[in-house]
């Protein structure tokens, strides 16, 4: 059936958990693209046939006209599905930039196709230049602050001599606990290097 593969592609995206990416289905994707070219070929050959029969392509309403119309509509449908697939994936990819930051962990990066990786990088650059024009880092302060200071535990060796915003340095050895400014700690938390201790 025409358009089925494209629908499957969109369904596959839609059935994934919200905000989560499934691996880029390049097989299916390429097949739909190929289907599009096939539709186009058949569309053209039907129109050619009508022209050879000396019919006016604009006004004739015969079997060939409706055949061509079906191919046209299938093509448009495929295009919409492909675009929806890419567009919605791109939206999740952008949200990753906010949630995780400009460096993606391997298990997520694997799910992107090559062009999506490019897009992620380009978008991250665009966002960075926007923020530098503003002279404001928008990636911190993701949740409303309750207290300017929070208690954190270091989960991984981050190293010594990290300069905090108050010009003091700290030694973030693994499993050590610190009382830090929220804005200082946030970048480490989002990278999974620290966790906030609550209660």
């Amino acid at each position: 059936m025409y358009g089925r593969r494209a629908t499957q592609l969109v369904k596959e995206f839609a059935s994934a958990e919200k905000g989560q990416l499934t691996a880029f289905n390049s097989d299916q994707f390429e097949q739909v693209i190929a289907e599009c070219s096939q539709h186009h070929l058949e569309l053209q050959s039907l129109i050619r046939k009508m022209q050879e029969e000396g019919l006016d392509v604009q006004t004739t309403r015969n079997a060939d006209h409706y055949g061509a119309l079906i191919h046209h509509l299938s093509l448009v449908r495929n295009k919409r599905c492909l675009m929806a697939y890419m567009y919605n994936r791109a939206e999740i990819i952008r949200s990753l930039l906010w949630k995780i930051g400009p460096v993606l962990p391997l298990e997520i990066e694997e799910k992107l196709c090559h062009l999506e990786e490019e897009y992620f990088k380009k978008h991250s650059t665009a966002l960075k230049s926007y923020m530098s024009k503003l002279e404001l880092d928008l990636t911190v302060d993701m949740v409303p602050p309750k207290d300017p200071y929070i208690q954190v535990r270091v989960l991984d060796d981050i190293g010594e001599g990290i300069v905090l915003s108050d010009d003091k340095t700290a030694n973030f050895a693994r499993h050590s606990m610190h009382f830090l400014k929220r804005t200082d700690a946030e970048q480490f938390i989002s990278r999974g290097l620290m966790e906030e201790l609550t209660g």
């Binding site: 693209i33 791109a90 897009y119």
Partner: peptide
């Protein structure tokens, strides 16, 4: 650009 390269340029 992304949509262009991934989808549109491959269509008729």
């Amino acid at each position: 650009q992304h949509l262009e390269e991934s989808v549109l340029s491959k269509l008729p």
